[in-house]
């Protein structure tokens, strides 16, 4: 049963990667190179997996973990956009986002611990 589920998941993932790499998905932005377009789509797919955990997570702590991981993934998005558009301020957004997500994760952890914020 377990092997069957694993095989099913593998087939689904291979199908999604095949769609990403061989079928030209139209995009909203003008992409300079095909490579960056595919990289962006792969990162988007892994962010969707994170959102699945955010949707399903049985406890609040699981959701907090998913939010933390999403905050680090956004930095990757900022890096790819910085390469693609050639504008430097995307990486500024990345730095600000990293600071913000670090502080918000600490606040969530403190809330989970059951303490007040001024302690």
């Amino acid at each position: 049963m377990r092997r069957l589920r694993w095989l099913l998941g593998l087939i689904i993932i291979i199908l999604i990667f095949a769609v990403i790499f061989f079928y030209p998905i139209p995009s909203l932005l003008e992409w300079q190179s095909e490579f960056l377009h595919h990289a962006f789509l792969v990162l988007f797919f892994s962010a969707l997996l994170c959102l699945w955990r955010l949707f399903r997570g049985p406890t609040p702590a699981d959701r907090a973990v998913a939010v933390d991981i999403l905050g680090i993934l956004v930095l990757g998005f900022c890096g790819l956009l910085g390469i693609q558009t050639g504008r430097d301020w995307y990486i500024d957004i990345g730095i600000a986002w990293a600071l913000q997500s670090f502080i918000s994760t600490l606040a969530l952890a403190k809330y989970l611990e059951g303490r007040n914020f001024d302690e």
Partner: peptide
């Protein structure tokens, strides 16, 4: 700035993981 960002992530990601694990264990997961 990308180099600075790398240093920042390497310092903060383990700290936030540590805080989340501790908070989750104290909240009874």
């Amino acid at each position: 700035k990308a180099i600075l960002c790398i240093l920042f992530i390497l310092l903060t990601a383990p700290v936030s993981a540590h805080a989340l694990a501790r908070g989750a264990h104290k909240s009874g997961v």
